[in-house]
Simulated scan of single mutants.
Amino acid sequence: MSKPFQTHNQQLKILRSRNISITNGGKAKAILIRENYYQLINGYKHIFLDIVETKKRKEDYYKIGTTFEQIYALYEFDRNLRNVLMKYILMTENSIKSKIAYQFSSECPKEPFSYFNINNYRSHDHQKTTSLIAELSSVTKKNTDATTKSGPFYHYFNEHKELPLWVLITKLTLGQTCSLFYSLKNTTQTEIIKAVLHEFKNNCNVAAQHINPQLYISDFSSAINSIKAFRNVCAHEERLYDYEAKNRNGKPIQTTYFYLNSPTPPFKGGLFDIILLLRLFLTKKDYKQLLKRLDEELAKLQTELPSNLFSEVTRKMNLPKNWSIELNKYI
Rank of each mutant, 00 (worst) to 15 (best):
G65K: 11
P320D: 00
Q103I: 15
P306G: 09
E304P: 08
R34T: 10
S21A: 14
T23F: 11
A245N: 09
R18D: 02
L280H: 02
G43T: 12
P265Y: 01
I275N: 00
N202H: 10
N119W: 04
T188D: 02
T303Q: 12
P263E: 05
S221Q: 15
M1Q: 03
E111A: 06
G26H: 13
K288A: 15
H198M: 09
Y216F: 15
K56R: 15
L305H: 11
N19P: 09
L165W: 00
G43P: 14
R279V: 13
R16S: 08
Y72C: 08
Q11T: 14
E238Y: 11
Q11W: 07
Q127K: 06
K13D: 12
I193D: 00
N24T: 10
K128F: 03
K284V: 05
E159L: 09
R57T: 08
H198E: 10
R18E: 03
R16N: 07
V84E: 00
Y38W: 11
A208N: 14
L294G: 04
E244D: 04
I51K: 11
M317L: 12
T147C: 03
A223P: 06
T7F: 00
K321G: 10
S307M: 08
T147L: 10
F220Y: 11
K56A: 09
D295M: 09
Q214A: 12
R315C: 11
K45N: 08
F68H: 07
N80P: 06
S123E: 10
F230N: 00
D242N: 14
K141Y: 06
E76N: 15
T177R: 02
E312H: 12
K99W: 01
L291H: 04
Y37R: 07
N202R: 11
N158G: 00
I96C: 01
N36T: 12
Y243N: 05
A195L: 13
P306K: 08
A101Q: 01
N143F: 09
D50L: 10
L15G: 04
A73C: 14
T140F: 03
I192M: 01
Q209E: 14
A245L: 15
K228D: 03
T92H: 00
A73D: 15
L215C: 13
H155K: 15
A235K: 04
M91N: 07
Y216P: 07
E69I: 11
T188G: 01
N203R: 06
I64W: 06
S138W: 04
